[in-house]
Design a protein around this nucleic acid. Structure first.
Lengths: 236, 236, 236, 236
DNA sequence: CATGAATGAGAGTTCATTCAT
DNA sequence: GATGAATGAACTCTCATTCAT
């Protein structure tokens, strides 16, 4: 066999852990304009598939300007992900509205959670962050802290502080919230992330949400009769 | 502003639904050798990040040989994913061993499920398939059918045919299995997919597994007292 | 025998009828510089035999710049051919100068035609267009329209409008011009296209030109005695 | 500007003037079989566009066998062209049949000449030889000697030895034959070589042939009245 | 001798990045 | 500060040629 060069990996230089900040670039408006253009391209083509020329064109600036505001493609990508996770993701967690009963409130939470999980923004972020997790580990941290972590924390806090929380037996609120979160995902999230067809009819979402609540309360509600499983029959 | 052409991104050439086979290369050993090298590179760098030169070097063959066995990078990628999903994934679903009780049996299933979900192979497949879901939709289908779908089906079948299944009230076995699957994932799967640190200590896995079983049975077990939530205290 | 795939040759990608222009590159000077370099290489090696690296080197630009000005090798080739045929070929058809007699005028035309036919530009265009006629049929059309067609038309027009044209009996001026054109070529053109040695001495050219005129007029001149054939004796 | 390497030409190694012969290869049948396959591919794709794999496949032999019979692609190409020009081209020059009159005989010759010039074999040879004239100058020599040269010589010989040749005044038979040859081509040959549409209707061919004869005889026939030009009207 | 898998240089093309204007 | 033409390394893929079987 021919003598093979010693480096076993790929030829590309690994991107150093870049700070999100940038060297120059003064106009916040232009910065935002660039990020908007970048968002469209990164969301559609991913990190590797996006080209700086394309982003510049899409943002309506020259490539030189692009590099005035962001030192490299990696920096721009990080800025884009950070912005989404820091600014847009938290907006998706609305206050938990109180329902008449614990079950009503949780059902509301479940529906919002499912909607959140299957939202285009959330799926896109999930996709690109998972894709580039090895290259940009910081992004995953930020995303997790502002996404699932935050949602779980809010729910956990509510579980201990809700008006009817004395009805609950929740020794580990964070874990209980995790389980609730998981019960809301079922296979919907997994399939949506892989762009496989998903039943998102209101009836099915409702069934999933109410089932999640039922299963959750059967364990975490302090007293009362156990609720039997629900069934789902698609609309005739 | 300069007149910008209308195409915002670059055109990904869609790969036709090619058979995994190829025209000439016939030695199964060399084919396997190439797939091994490709696996290392694709797993580490994803589809776009992997280069054929690098794969060839890593597999110990020339680029020409690579193309003798696989007509294009896309075909090689598909072959790699298909092989993993078709040949390796199903091996991970072992028979469901019967325990003394329903809870024992389910706990065993839960532990295996968690192990499966967090296995490097499963995580890697998840990652690259999610990354390239838009480009290779067929791969997602295959993965889902051989992975989550199959696991869920096996569990659903067991739920209705297990020795003690008369103890269960499972009107929709597939959905119940989905919920069980989801309860096993909690945040472990999500964090692992993003290469974030995960507590995989046996004690924690055990806690997650037993909690999943408890929550599940509190809804789906036909009779008996409700089991209270468990708590987890890390090893001292 | 091994099972042979059905495609016997390779697939030439057909170039869409692209405009000569390009998306970005704007400096006409650099464009011209590139076309000059391309001309040298295409003229020497033909389309397939020329490499973009070589053209870039020869034009004194990088490959990237090449592709800034021309989207592909095919587009560059077309631009080169089009420029030659549209801009340079027509310049070669000078006005037809009036001589003292019809024969004088036609002899002048014949000499210019022979010179044109055997000019390096004309031979090169002929060669590369013939080579790639199947791949770039449009180029052949353009060449013909700006080359032989135009020359023939000009001559045909002159035959009907020349001062002494009442001396001629030309029922089909285009065909007569074609015959005159053909008589000027004899074997000179054919041999030159194949880069075989050709006698281009003024004496021989003169002989060919005068012979062409004589043969032509013996048929198309309305009256007068028939002129006998000429003879050629190489210079001592 | 960046420092450009000194070599201005292309990277490809120029093919040395190879002998037509080959090193080994013993079976004439297999040799012929290979040449047949090569003919199909070279004729369709030209020299550069043909690949040895494709030729081997088309000829029904392995690439190894190909190289047993022909040392290189260049040698194979030369062998193919030589075979065509040496064996097939001469077959196309049939004896010149005597007609009732000189004009009848020449008309017959003219029609055969036009047919020959526009035959697929002749056009293909012309095309590939012109394309590769710079690379394989020997081929052009061989083609010319066996094609145009031979045709012209045969005609020239007939002009001096024909039964009615005393009716002619042909001081330079070779040149007269050349003129006749040229008059038969008009624009038909040029357009056919460029794969442009050509009127090959029998009526038009007849017109061209008879016009050629008329123009020829008006100069080279010793006596008799001058014949006026013909006209052509397409079939209704 | 015939085979066809293996080779590796080189093809056309893209794109992150720089820098003179 | 903004521009976009220029760069050149790296990409995917092809193919003439070799050689172990």
């Amino acid at each position: 066999m021919a003598p093979t060069p010693p480096f076993p990996g790929k030829d590309k230089v690994q991107v150093p852990p870049v700070a999100t900040g940038t060297s120059s670039g003064t106009s916040p408006a232009k910065r935002a304009q660039i990020l908007e253009g970048a968002a469209r391209i990164f969301a559609e083509h991913g990190y590797e598939g996006a080209s700086m020329s394309c982003i510049a064109r899409n943002a309506g600036v020259s490539k030189g300007t692009l590099y005035n505001y962001f030192d490299s493609k990696a920096v721009l990508f990080c800025a884009f992900i950070e912005q989404c996770t820091r600014e847009k993701l938290p907006l998706m967690f609305r206050r938990i509205d109180e329902g008449a009963t614990m079950a009503d409130s949780l059902e509301h939470v479940a529906r919002e959670l499912i909607e959140l999980i299957t939202s285009p923004l959330s799926l896109m972020l999930n996709r690109v962050i998972v894709s580039e997790a090895a290259t940009f580990p910081e992004l995953a941290k930020t995303f997790w802290a502002n996404g699932p972590q935050q949602a779980t924390s809010i729910l956990a806090a509510w579980l201990t502080r809700a008006p009817q929380s004395e009805l609950l037996d929740v020794p580990d609120a964070m874990f209980a919230a995790e389980q609730f979160y998981a019960l809301c995902q079922t296979h919907i999230a997994g399939r949506a992330r892989m762009q496989l067809p998903v039943d998102t009819s209101p009836a099915y979402i409702d069934f999933v949400a109410r089932s999640a609540v039922r299963v959750f309360l059967n364990t975490y509600q302090r007293s009362g009769a156990r609720l039997p499983p629900l069934t789902y029959s698609p609309a005739p």
